[in-house]
Design a binder for these strands. Structure first.
Lengths: 315, 315
DNA sequence: TCGACGAATAACCGATCGCTTAGTGGAGAC
DNA sequence: GTCTCCACTAAGCGATCGGTTATTCGTCGA
């Protein structure tokens, strides 16, 4: 019985599928399956059994889940406790949707590290909406910046609004868009395939079929294609400020847009929150952070992003 | 960072020495030292440093201790939770001084297993007094039967009296004992070398030098030697009932004896106690258990006992 | 009935764990 | 100074872990 096995089990139980857990951990699906098999053998209990929709827990599995979750969480806590005790920079892991990581996580991390006088290092990772809450509650991440995640009460998370913005649809000024929006070519970033993402919701509301989507490795690439006239690209309005100002793109009037959004900061409740996480949470409310959220970085070349989507970056 | 490493660390921190921890775990001393080295390297902190008397914790070490102890404890809890959930017999580990294991633990375990209709299996192990409390608080054992262990408040244990008995000194009826007790040959079981044991205390009070001790692998062997006239053997009076009735041994009048003792049952507090441990604890108060405590088994041939002393038996 | 998807298994591989025995090093006791 | 105790290191060994790719198995849905 190892901590990796327990952590795989918890993730499978929480996400409801081996595949999802494998994605969240950034490993192949048999790796998770085997960790599960080893645990099953060791404890002599199936723990999770396949059932029509996802995996359901046995009696033993549900007892294990509560305990294993604590152990995994304590494991992460132990590391940070020891490291912080000796003055090494604390590792703080921020998780967010692709668009946020792409434009604001970098400057945000740099600013916060500077503000903490180098005593806290921030790293950022991309994750699907459905995984973000679990990652934070598992202490695989310290803070999630993105949609509201307080819906699942069982995770015990605090999700507070920090920033309002608008989702719009962009296209080149000279683009000739014929017919209904459902027939346009839609140039999207990978999050559009996350059913819980705002972009995905917008596309569903419009009734855009998957066949009309072109998925680009990141938002910047999708917007460049749109600027070349290849189609329309949904995006957060203020993140495209450079392209809009240079007239490479303009806002297209589409039903249901602009979609008012609110980014939330999600963490463990105060009593379970690490000091570093609390500090970052506080930083997000400062004018300095607001400025960074409002004035995004220029975006980064595609090569800096990992090819697979919805993979968290930390090992 | 593995659970074995954490468990080794906790034991070293609690027992104050690598050697003691190795004994408690039943492994060689370098094994523990290496586990510690691996943890130190992984966490990049010395955790425990040698200091004149034993090992003292660094700041990181003391932070780790509280968390690691929980993790180790949860690990044991996880196993028993899953096993009990699927109807497999629960493993209940009883720890006691050598004499109790030798004479009463076997019948007690059998009786309790029968009483629980086979749903709980009891195994018994020998441990030094100083280790018993730690073993219970670590959940390496579920119940300790022996001396009072409530002294160390930090372990958070409940130690309640269950049985009164007397420690006496025995010899063959025809033994010719010359001079003062300090000059007799003393035939002792291994617990006599445990400074916290009652036998050891008695010998200290009498001023018996170590050179006059002959250590036998178990109580039965020591008593057999005494019956052959090889010297005197301290022991719990009612455990020697067979030898006394057959006139192989008789009580020798020695200052400070009979020494009134009280066996205590030590467990975690009720809210942290496993149901099986609670059940055994309750069983110890029943007339059936009293009878077993009063009328011991015949003792077992030496070969059934492990050569090393003060080693807990479970892996 | 067939196909597709997701879980489980097989086979393999390198790294690490956990343990051993044997030897080194350092601090205190005589 | 030398002895002794105790922690640590070295070296080696077998088992397991944790990961991969490729394949098989079961179940659901068309």
């Amino acid at each position: 019985m190892t901590l990796t096995q327990l952590s795989a089990f918890v993730l499978v139980a929480r996400l409801g599928s081996v595949k999802a857990a494998a994605n969240a951990l950034g490993v192949s699906e048999p790796a998770v399956s085997q960790a599960l098999a080893a645990l099953r053998k060791y404890l002599d209990d199936p723990l999770l059994v396949r059932s029509g929709s996802g995996m359901t827990m046995t009696a033993g599995g549900s007892r294990l889940l509560t305990i294993a979750a604590q152990m995994v969480s304590l494991g992460a806590e132990a590391e940070s406790a020891v490291r912080s005790a000796q003055g090494a920079p604390e590792q703080l892991r921020l998780v967010a949707p692709n668009s946020i990581v792409e434009f604001v996580a970098g400057p945000m991390a740099d600013a916060f590290t500077a503000r903490s006088a180098g005593s806290i290092e921030v790293s950022a990772g991309v994750s699907a909406t459905a995984e973000m809450g679990v990652l934070v509650s598992q202490r695989l991440a310290d803070l999630a910046l993105g949609p509201y995640l307080g819906g699942d009460r069982s995770l015990g998370l605090v999700s507070e609004p920090v920033f309002r913005c608008r989702l719009v649809v962009l296209a080149a000024p000279d683009a000739r868009l014929r017919g209904a929006p459902t027939q346009w070519p839609w140039l999207v970033e990978p999050a559009a395939t996350d059913p819980d993402s705002d972009v995905s919701r917008l596309l569903r509301n419009l009734g855009v079929p998957d066949s009309r989507l072109s998925v680009f490795p990141n938002q910047t690439a999708a917007w460049e294609a749109a600027a070349r006239g290849a189609g329309v690209a949904p995006g957060i309005a203020h993140l495209a400020v450079h392209q809009l100002r240079r007239r490479e793109l303009q806002v297209v009037d589409v039903p249901g847009t602009p979609l008012e959004l609110c980014w939330h900061a999600t963490t463990l409740p105060i009593d379970r929150r690490s000091p570093a996480a609390a500090s970052l949470r506080h930083f997000l409310g400062t004018p300095e952070a607001m400025k960074l959220l409002r004035a995004p970085g220029a975006g980064v070349p595609p090569s800096r992003f990992r090819p697979p989507v919805y993979v968290t970056i930390w090992s």
